[in-house]
Structures are given as structure tokens and as C-alpha cells.
């Protein structure tokens, strides 16, 4: 089914069409959240929140062709909220939480490569390599200048490549 048509239908409230669209992007969405939040549970929560929020605010999707960018923006915000929550949880915890953080996470070579970057660089790499944004779009999303994004992206990708090759 053509994505654009699905998006038009979703815009008018069609839940099936919306869910269908979601399945096209679900792996990328989850992947983004997982690498950003560094654990399964939070990633699941963030994607969950994102799905609900995206549907509720579907009318703000202006251009059916821009669905991907639009939904990742929402996911980006959901992840940011999760990060704040993580911090608050950490600060409050007296008894060590029974964390569902997976050991697998830091066994992944990608995770190790990502850890060599700064938070902002990680954001930029994920937004580019997983969410598929252009430097300009990333700049707009995170409030940087396109050239800053571009140079950080270029540096980060080559740093990661060195570690992964």
C-alpha cells in the first residue's frame, strides 16, 4: 500500500491505516529508541508513548510525504522525556532497582562505538543513520546550525567506522 495513501487515510482518523504505517517504521523507531535510551523497557515505553501521541495529534501531520520525519520528531521528544524520567528515578532510588537493562546492550559493538561519542553526537548519528534525517532536518530538530550538524556527523561517523571496522 502506498505510504502516502496510508498517511492520508490516517490523517482522517483511520486506525487501520495508522497501524499499517506504524508497521512500516516500527523497527527503525524501536532501534532509535533502544540505542538512545540504552535499554529495552524504556525503548518499549518510548515507542508506546510515541504511537499514542502520534495518533492523537495526527492532524498536525501537514504533509503525508513527511510522515517519517514527523513521527521521529515525536519519538525524539518521547525519548527526551524518558531520559528525564531516568534521571529522576536514579535520584530517588534507595533500593537498587530491579533493572531490566540488558547486558546485551553493552555487548553490542554498535553500543560501544556509540559510547565513544558525546550525547549530542550520538543524537545526530541516530537521527541520521537510523531515523534517516538530513543534516538540515536534524539541525532544525535539535536547534543547531546545519553546518555544525554536518561536521559533527561527519566526525562521528568516521570515528565509529574506525571502531567498527
Amino acid at each position: 500500500m502506498d505510504e502516502k495513501i496510508l498517511a492520508e487515510q490516517a490523517k482522517s482518523g483511520d486506525k487501520q491505516a495508522f497501524a499499517e504505517l506504524y508497521t512500516i517504521y516500527k523497527d527503525k523507531l524501536y532501534r532509535y529508541a533502544f540505542f538512545k535510551l540504552q535499554n529495552e523497557q524504556d525503548a518499549t515505553d518510548a515507542v508506546s508513548d510515541c504511537v499514542l501521541e502520534a495518533y492523537r495529534y495526527i492532524t498536525s501531520l501537514k504533509n503525508a510525504q513527511a510522515f517519517s520525519g514527523w513521527i521521529f520528531k515525536i519519538l525524539y521528544r518521547c525519548c527526551s522525556r524518558k531520559i528525564s524520567e531516568q534521571a529522576t528515578r536514579r535520584a530517588q532510588t534507595e533500593i537498587p532497582e530491579n533493572l531490566s537493562y540488558t547486558e546485551d546492550f553493552y555487548n553490542l559493538e554498535l553500543s560501544q562505538a556509540l559510547s565513544a561519542l558525546t550525547g549530542k553526537e550520538r543524537d545526530i548519528v541516530l537521527l541520521s543513520a537510523v531515523a534517516g534525517y538530513t543534516s538540515k532536518e536534524i539541525a532544525r530538530l535539535i536547534g543547531s546550525k546545519p553546518n555544525t550538524v554536518r561536521s559533527k556527523l561527519s566526525r562521528s561517523l568516521s570515528k565509529m567506522r574506525e571502531l567498527l571496522e
Partner: peptide, 22 residues
């Protein structure tokens, strides 16, 4: 790293079952 099995289309439908667009 892919979306878990239980996060497919049905998961999405379930999530938005009670929701209405704003």
C-alpha cells in the same frame, strides 16, 4: 535490534483503540 514480536500492528491498534485525534 528490531521491534520485538509483540510490538507489531496489533500492538499499535491496541494502543490507539480508545484514542481520538485532537
Amino acid at each position: 535490534v528490531d521491534a520485538p514480536e509483540n510490538m507489531g500492528k496489533d500492538f499499535a491498534l491496541e494502543k490507539i483503540a480508545e484514542a481520538t485525534p485532537e
